[in-house]
Design a protein around this nucleic acid. Structure first.
Lengths: 196, 196
DNA sequence: AAAGCTATTTATAACTG
DNA sequence: TCAGTTATAAATAGCTT
């Protein structure tokens, strides 16, 4: 018998709270169901008891509800399965990249003569050969750059000699400015600060 | 005035359905709120009208509700915001790893004398110095290994000479087996397949 | 604790302005 | 179409079993 209207505040007595929970929980779920049928509305209700048990009602697939909810610009929810798949993919990429970095770092250390204590004599031999080959390549490249530099200097010298030999009136006619700048440009790019 | 109990089936008259929706919707949301307060329960209610408008109630963060729901082994939903945050983190890691790999790869190519065409003379000079230094380190290490090998050989030679000078009865008393195996072990680990 | 009962409150269908 | 009213159905607090 209802004596006096109920105060909407936490019921402290656990037994009473438990009983009220069971009754009102059913009430809410029933009302939700009725509303969905009577008014052709989509409704989802999720209830967790204070003991952590789940009671739910959904007039349709909850997934759909989430997507609809999402479209309303609220915080968005997507399937965990989908996310997991993507996560694993990223994780795989990440792992293989870490492996590659470690490999490259070890390789680098060996190439600069560090971390060699773990190498066998044969490995050292192989590394030495590689280094000698690389060194030859570097030296060849240096020689090539120097050769280009010398070539540019000769071209410039020739150009200057030709210019000074010509009469001053012809200078603009020949379009000489472009050749001059080509030579200079080549020189600057090739050897900004030469040391040898 | 309620004449007769209501039939729980779709209300066909749109106006009537609309009115009933508004009233019952408020009823459900109110009941949900009361239940959450009275019984200290977590409740979420989502209602979409047939016109697509959203009405909702949640006793706490809906995000939390989803995670709780997830833990109950249902098909799982988690917050997209959360996922996005994690994704961006992974993406950031991934990008920086890609950068590092590219840097290391370029560095490697230069160290083995490839991709040098883009290097300035000064850079080549620097690489050459590094290589010469590394080469010295490798050669020193090879010399060190050879020296250890020779040392081991001498130790073995001495051991064999001592052994053959002793009378055969003393062999077991001296515990010579252990010295012998030490020498051999050191030799094998240091230089498995020597070439020089 | 779970199920049933009943006095009452609460929700709401139909009506009204 | 929207509040407000009212008669009635439905929900439920406190009780009993």
């Amino acid at each position: 018998m209802m004596r006096g209207k109920v105060q909407i505040k936490r019921i402290e007595k656990p037994t009473k709270r438990q009983v009220t929970f069971a009754k009102r929980r059913n009430g809410v779920l029933k009302k939700a169901h009725e509303l969905s049928v009577l008014c052709d509305a989509q409704i989802a209700v999720m209830i967790f008891s204070d003991t952590g048990r789940l009671y739910e009602f959904s007039s349709c697939n909850l997934q759909e509800m989430m997507q609809k909810y999402h479209k309303h610009g609220k915080d968005v929810h997507i399937s965990k399965l989908e996310v997991q798949k993507y996560m694993e993919e990223l994780k795989g990429d990440s792992d293989s990249m870490i492996n590659e970095i470690q490999f490259l770092q070890l390789y680098d250390r060996k190439l600069v003569g560090d971390g060699l204590n773990s190498c066998s004599y044969d490995e050292l031999d192989e590394i030495q050969k590689q280094m000698e080959k690389s060194l030859r390549t570097v030296r060849e490249r240096k020689v090539q750059l120097l050769a280009e530099y010398v070539e540019n200097l000769r071209a410039k010298e020739k150009y200057l000699l030709d210019e000074s030999a010509k009469p001053s009136t012809d200078k603009h006619k020949e379009g000489t400015g472009s050749l001059g700048s080509e030579v200079e440009t080549g020189l600057c790019i090739g050897l900004p600060q030469v040391r040898y």
